[in-house]
Amino acid sequence: MNIKILAFGIAKDIFGGSTTNIQLDENATTKQLKTHLEAAYPRLKQLASYMVAVNNEYADDAGAITERDEIAIIPPVSGG
């Protein structure tokens, strides 16, 4: 399945744009998404940390992803 991923902050610089697309197997997990992304964009691994949000909620690694979900990469936040 084709997954569109939203990027914010430094993730936009790493992806070279505000979205990127990757191909994942059906029923892939957040962990698999991170593994694919880190292979495509090694600079992700240099971040202090980053989270994946699925439908506006922080996701844990075991959670499943579908094409209909809104997926975003959340680099370390720095609001306030």
Binding site: I10, P76, S78, G79, G80
Partner: peptide, 27 residues
Amino acid sequence: IDTLKETVPIWKKEVFEDGEVWVAAHP
């Protein structure tokens, strides 16, 4: 305010005279 700085997905970039940096992005 303390929790906002830890969990809310908002980012700031500091722009200096000689460069810029996304705050907290790197260790």
